[in-house]
Design a protein around this nucleic acid. Structure first.
Length: 814
RNA sequence: GCGGACGUGGUGAAAUUGGUAUACACGCCAGACUUAGGAUCUGGUGCCUCACGGCGUGGAGGUUCAAGUCCUCUCGUCCGCACCA
């Protein structure tokens, strides 16, 4: 009897795969390819169950396609820049680089204990200087093409730590490390002009509809926030122009509801609109109003979101473009300067915010849209479409038609134009950090910002660095930043900001397509062959940021002439979280399960099988120790029964001559094979594939035909190999010399049966079951059914008789 | 508030085109083997009922010979966005 000893056989096969380079892709491009990618890990120190789930899924997919004769690329690497390394440096006085690369070594060994079929020769870390070199080349190109720029913008700043905080590092308005309140500060920083691609990023979501989860597409759509409308200028009255010293004649507003334009009763500006700033700087409004404006200006985004509506009168008026009435201009705290033109036309009768604001400040409310049917309500804003009233020549039109007519009118008379606006903002990539990729620019007093010369790349981090948590370590370094200007040769300083780590993860999938080239990031032929990623697997938490940035980078690199694809990830699978006791596993909650201890106790195959069996891949997975035991027991049983295999090849079997049990066993085995072909095409239902395999083993146990056992293991070790590779390699090599690891044909004959089971139902309710020969006619079957069901029919009228072949008979009685 | 997803046994979950609800597993119960069992094997297990039978996929209606599946309304849970004009 084969004894199941995962600790021994798993080591054995891992060593074998390593020594034979079993999972390196072919360098030739002859075969059809599959690029299977799991989101690369941050080397935090140890792997967690989320990693196990992620890589178990991508590994199963990779192994499946490899056996089906695809050339498979399934790489792994490390997203290795980032703040935890600096925090470790502060806390434990470790150099970030040492901490990071030691973590990588440890996690690499943890991952290999899972038996993952990674293409290891392409492994790299994003903190490798070579990777930075190519990335810096991309960034310089972006800079030269105007896709990367520097400006001064408002950032989250911690006064205590003297550093900029990323949005996600501000927790409840406070610095996540020192807990002091974070504030907004104007600082020079680098931004990538992702907004130039807003339209394409929006439009190309259509191309992903079949390959990406709907939810992710929706989230990206919302984030990009495309909206169509009308942009036009509101002109000041002469008196107001005078107040503004003739500096401003008008300002632009944007609306998605041009049909409501006759309902405009006031206009609102953002608190930091340039006109408002002019009024403040030139002392044109009372001190009290200025104070309130400054207060609103300095409010953090978070405070602003929860604040009540607040307005400040400016004493300015504009002229309504149609009615020529004078309407007041105010500052409203809910108007954002970062969206549209930072100013709105306000229609209180048909916009909730405008209504609330108008009620609060006693501004007029003028109804111009009525519902097509039903009563018009006036105690709140009516925001639906309807019919226009009191709207001059547009009265009587419906909203949609009026909207386009009004835009047409504006365009014809050069008063305004159709406009598309996006919520998406440019991507600020400056971080005042040490452990990040340096920005390859030099600041020169005479020449401004100058890219580092190509031959001087990469710009690398200094090794000797003091990381105290205060200030920017690169800026504080005694010598690092001093250099000379590449253009004029005068003294200059290097840029001391480093890049957001999302820059590295925006193109790592391109680096994998070639094997560690030293002189360029990748070969063009390799990109052509391997891209796009056929299956991307990762957590839903990256639904917006990473996936949007990577999509953008792909398009930008395309336009810069580097690559020739539009979208990087053809298919996306977002796995669910791993929970314990109903909550996400986390150290602070103390509900973690360490993958390594599970592997030690049960083996990697058990861990992998449990995690794929316990829930559908996209759903949350509740960790359950008894469930793990169940997976372990199945693998043990599967191993023990292998003793019934006596033939070392696929036997030929005369199906017709088999007993009922034997036929059923074969059918279950081939059903599992069929399932295994289906799930990789659609849905990745590993849970049902494993269930089908369990059913097959249960059915096999009811008979003892050696041929059937041998055939079954020939097939089952093949289809379970992607899930539990070690034990399947062990059994398949022992019994079949691994000859069964290839595409297997489905024998349709095992599904052909001469009899069928029929449910006998009365009014749709199952009352009996019969097994009948398939040769019986419909009438014979109905007669038989009525006999079987006589006790239910007697004394009643039969109204209808329905026979569905292979399924049921339904007799309708009254 | 807006948008999306989802509600099936004690638990995780199955269920082609509408066609036998609860596959598979966990747990539980009983038995076998055993010095022992938290190992292994066998059988049972939706709920109510002694039984006949009845009821069952969040709830209420509807379509249909037939509804977990389709339609309408409703309740609940989760997720995302959240003053974007």
């Amino acid at each position: 009897m084969m004894k199941y000893t995962p600790q021994i056989i798993e080591k054995k096969w891992q060593k074998y795969w390593e020594e034979n380079d079993s999972y390196e892709p072919d360098s030739s491009h002859d075969k059809p390819k599959k690029y299977i990618l799991s989101m690369f890990p941050y080397p935090s120190g140890r792997i967690h169950m989320g990693h196990v789930r992620n890589y178990s899924i991508s590994d199963a997919i990779s192994r499946h396609y490899r056996k089906n004769n695809f050339n498979v690329l399934h790489p792994i690497g490390w997203d290795s820049f980032g703040m935890p390394a600096e925090n470790a440096a502060i806390k434990h006085n470790l150099h970030p680089k040492k901490w990071t690369y030691e973590n990588i070594d440890y996690m690499r060994s943890e991952l290999s204990s899972l038996g993952l079929s990674f293409s290891k020769k392409r492994e790299f870390a994003t903190s490798d200087e070579l990777y930075s070199k190519f990335e810096q080349e991309f960034l310089i190109k972006m800079f030269n093409e105007g896709l990367l720029y520097q400006n001064t913008q408002s950032v989250n700043w911690c006064q205590t730590c003297h550093t900029v905080l990323a949005n996600e590092q501000v927790v409840d308005g406070c610095c996540w490390r020192c807990d002091n309140e974070s504030e907004l500060k104007l600082m020079p920083s680098y931004s990538i002009a992702i907004t130039k691609y807003a339209q394409e990023l929006h439009d190309d979501l259509k191309k992903l509809e079949n390959g990406w989860p709907k939810q992710v597409i929706t989230m990206q759509k919302n984030w990009i926030g495309r909206s169509e409308g009308l942009e036009f200028a509101l002109e000041f009255t002469d008196k107001s122009k005078e107040l503004l010293d003739g500096k401003f004649d008008s300002f632009e507003v944007f609306t998605t509801r041009p049909d409501t334009i006759y309902g405009v009763t006031y206009s609102a500006l953002a608190a930091d609109h340039e006109i408002v700033n002019y009024l403040i700087q030139n002392n044109k409004i009372p001190q009290a109003a200025q104070d309130r404006l400054l207060k609103i200006q300095n409010q953090s985004e978070r405070d602003r979101n929860i604040a009540d509506k607040e307005g400040v009168e400016l004493g300015l008026h504009v002229i309504h473009p149609f009615t020529k009435e004078e309407i007041p201009v105010l500052v409203a705290n809910f108007v954002l300067s970062s969206y549209g033109s930072g100013a709105v036309m306000a229609v209180p009768a048909h916009d909730e915010r405008d209504f609330e604001f108008a009620s609060q400040y006693n501004l007029p409310i003028k109804t111009v849209i009525t519902p097509k049917s039903g009563e018009l309500v006036t105690d709140r804003a009516y925001t639906e479409a309807g019919l226009l009233i009191d709207s001059g020549e547009f009265s009587g039109m419906n909203s949609t038609k009026a909207g386009s007519s009004i835009i047409y009118h504006f365009e014809k008379n050069s008063m305004g134009k159709r406009k598309v606006n996006f919520k998406l903002r440019d991507w600020g990539i400056s971080r005042q950090r040490y452990w990040g990729a340096p920005l390859p620019f030099i600041k020169c007093d005479s020449c401004g910002i100058v890219p580092v010369k190509k031959e001087d790349l990469p710009v690398t981090l200094p090794k000797d660095v003091k990381i105290s948590g205060e200030g920017n370590p690169l800026d504080n370094h005694p010598t690092w930043k001093y250099t000379t200007c590449p253009t004029c040769g005068k003294d200059a300083v290097k840029e001391t900001d480093t890049m957001d780590t999302f820059v590295q993860s925006s193109w790592y999938f391109l680096r994998y397509v070639s094997e560690n080239l030293q002189d360029k990031p990748y070969n063009d032929e390799d990109v052509k062959y391997w891209m796009g990623v056929d299956q991307y697997v990762g957590g839903i938490e990256h639904a917006i940021l990473h996936l949007l940035y990577a999509r953008f980078f792909t398009k930008a690199l395309r336009d810069l002439g580097y690559i020739d694809i539009d979208e990087p990830f053809s298919n996306l699978l977002t796995q669910g979280m791993v929970l314990k006791d109903g909550a996400k596993m986390s150290k602070s909650k103390g509900n973690t399960v360490d993958p390594s201890s599970i592997i030690q106790k049960y083996g990697a195959d058990t861990a992998r099988m449990f995690i794929l069996f316990a829930a559908p891949v996209a759903k949350e997975l509740e960790w359950n120790d008894s469930g793990v035991e169940g997976a372990f027991r199945f693998i043990k049983r599967f191993t023990n029964r292998a003793e019934n295999v006596t033939l070392n090849t696929l036997p030929s079997i005369d199906h017709k001559s088999l007993s009922k049990e034997e036929k059923l066993a074969r059918k279950k085995v081939y059903e599992a094979l069929k399932k295994s072909n289906e799930i990789y095409e659609e849905g990745f239902g590993f849970n049902t594939l494993i269930a089908a395999s369990m059913e097959a083993l249960n059915a096999l146990n009811t008979q003892s035909n050696e041929k059937i056992w041998s055939e079954a293991y020939y097939i089952l070790t093949n289809i379970l190999e992607p899930i539990a590779p070690h034990i399947c390699w062990e059994i398949a090599s022992e019994k079949f010399n691994l000859k069964n690891f290839k595409k297997l044909e489905i024998l349709e004959e095992v599904f052909v049966e001469d009899s069928m089971k029929l449910a006998l139902t009365i009014n749709g309710k199952k009352r009996a079951e019969v097994e009948v020969e398939k040769t019986l006619s419909k009438d014979e079957i109905l007669t038989l059914a009525k006999e079987e069901l006589s006790s239910w029919i007697d004394g009643k009228n039969i109204i209808k008789e329905i026979y569905v072949p292979n399924k049921l008979v339904n007799i309708v009685v009254k």
